[in-house]
Design a binder for these strands. Sequence first.
DNA 1: GAGGCTTATTTTTAGGCGCGAACTAACCTC
DNA 2: GAGGTTAGTTCGCGCCTAAAAATAAGCCTC
Lengths: 402, 402
Amino acid sequence: MVRARATVRDLRRQNRSVLLTALFLDGPLSRLQLSASTGLSAATASTITGELLDEGLLTEAGSVESDGGRPRVLLRVNPVFGHVVGVDVGETGIKVELFDLAMTRLSTVDLPVAAVRPGPVSELVAAGVAQVLSASGVPASSVLGVGVGVPGTVERGTSAVVHAQTIGWDAVPLERMIREAGVEPPLFVENGAKTQGQAEMWFGAGRGARHAVIVLVGSGVGVAVVTGGVMHRGATSNAGEWGHTTIVYGGRRCRCGVRGCLEAYAGAEAMLGRYREAARDGSSAPDQVSALEELLTSRSAAARRVVEESVGYLGAGIANLVNLFNPERVVLGGWAGLALGARQLDRIVAATAEHALRHPYAQVRIELGRTGPDAVAVGAATLPVAALLETGADPRSARRAG
Amino acid sequence: MVRARATVRDLRRQNRSVLLTALFLDGPLSRLQLSASTGLSAATASTITGELLDEGLLTEAGSVESDGGRPRVLLRVNPVFGHVVGVDVGETGIKVELFDLAMTRLSTVDLPVAAVRPGPVSELVAAGVAQVLSASGVPASSVLGVGVGVPGTVERGTSAVVHAQTIGWDAVPLERMIREAGVEPPLFVENGAKTQGQAEMWFGAGRGARHAVIVLVGSGVGVAVVTGGVMHRGATSNAGEWGHTTIVYGGRRCRCGVRGCLEAYAGAEAMLGRYREAARDGSSAPDQVSALEELLTSRSAAARRVVEESVGYLGAGIANLVNLFNPERVVLGGWAGLALGARQLDRIVAATAEHALRHPYAQVRIELGRTGPDAVAVGAATLPVAALLETGADPRSARRAG
DNA sequence: GAGGCTTATTTTTAGGCGCGAACTAACCTC
DNA sequence: GAGGTTAGTTCGCGCCTAAAAATAAGCCTC
């Protein structure tokens, strides 16, 4: 409600941003189409796109013949104006990916990690960034930014600080550390669930929704909430700790120490834990992923009961989000969420319907996620792109040339 | 992220809005103070305030001598530029209040209601509005808008529609009905918890916070969530149904039909219900308010256990909000919330601390509400004011003269 | 009590911006 | 190649804010 004052320069910046965003999200468009879809006059659309073409942000992308008139020239964001890097810092390894501005993946590097300690992780990130650049021949000066998705919450001050209880990170100044390890482009550190949510919003099942909840079920559970097209962060970027909301007051003890957290019931670890307790036949699976697969396909009564209960808890948890946020879309993602959802989406939806209020439930569509295994990295790479689009790539603010 | 295009007219509108909002919220200010606090140049602050003075939106409010220079002339929002009406539609009666633009209460009317049926309610609202106007001699043409706080959720389309399961309202076109009952000024229908939250944000314990959660415990429980200074509404204005989030999976059946809702544990009705079950000595109190008072002051073991448990459930519920929204402030309000909080705030805070994650909890301050019993009406009256401030009282858009 | 000093506000000037109208460009059909 | 049609550009206008200059309105000192 309380906005900041604005000047004519802000006007231009905003309209540049609007045009650039329209072109980025809705592919090649002619100047007149742009004018129609943004509401700007043809004159203004023309002068601004002219400016953006001069600056190298846009390129022409062929033309479309029309029935009897001058053909339209299609414009698009120049894929090689700059590049972006997305990094997924996981508990077992680091994935670094390089994209051009059309979000085409140019290079990928996977680096295994023995112990997720901040020092070595920062070094590996820097090494990975260098590797993807040299592998694809992209000069470092062309990189608009490096996005980093991390487990745990990210506090954004002058320099991002990471808190991740589960891997023992307490107030780790990761942004500074990565910078000191030799990464020069602007850094964007963000919680992995939020970067993955961003990927679903731009390229996956969240496309087009203004109010959406992206539920991520992996070993634990997390959520990214988008309201009014904006990712929800809260006062200190700690928002969205859905996994540790109480759903069974006085229930099972969670690894965070509290009783009855959703994560103690609905994550892969919790499901497998409850299964181990229920059936003493001991899964032989080597890792969580195949263990969950085994649990989900098992026909034993114990397995089926665990799965059924988990579906119930997850549905209730989703219903809580539906009641609180009233989204138009819920996207179920994360490796465990996709595995569970592939077989049980109907029943998850039914459990949600059972626990949610009729009215908000009637507004929502619940879908499976549609981004691949590198969603965290893709989402991380969108962060510098989002920054570029939001500022309208204002040439007056400091920016590295393309 | 995706904004709309803007023109020079939007610029002016926005800067008018910024100045007007600064004056409304931070009392009388001189032109130069305005310039400093908004970031606008002194010249612009001067021309815009000149315009607003001409239009009657502002008045001079004395001057302050300075040490050796020209004294500053203080400006303020003209209290009699227009008036606003706030209506609280409750389950037992309707309260109508008239304010000037300085939010000074000019007149109040309380109308008892036998059965909350939409038709009679609309008629009563219209009658109440007419009464407060004639009582204070304010002409109807001076009323900028009438805000109406209602139980249940409000769907805002071309005309607001109310859903309130608890009182049997299903898709009631209240806005149209009130209009047809003879209320002419613009109508602003909103959920009562949200209007009360708005009152706390502007005049109560929420002042100054950009991310806040206003928890309302009455007969049932509700919440208003403010993120980034904006009241959270969701896709169809149904957001914030905290009372029916599951906190005890499979627990007590709630009046909404689902098991384990927070409202089945933490509202006054739930507390009294559990008390009746626990202690068969039967309260003799004539109404809920005094019954709760009795419960809270009773020294019986049963009463103390019920209160203690309720504090735990409420704390867990608040912790869920803290984890999900990461607010800087939690305000506990509502008649039952204030009664409970007056004696047990420490223990509610402790219960919240116990259930919330360390980090988001460390950012939050939990306080008692500071608005009086007419908070819903005051908050409702702020709705037209907020609309006025947001549009910058643009004289080009249709508006009734002051 | 006149001149100088200080601070507040208004006026003037300059640089931008988006829009609408008029204009040019590039194609098609007959 | 004339006429028609659609796409894109140019130009003048009205508005906007910022910066600089001018004016207003007090206080202080000698």
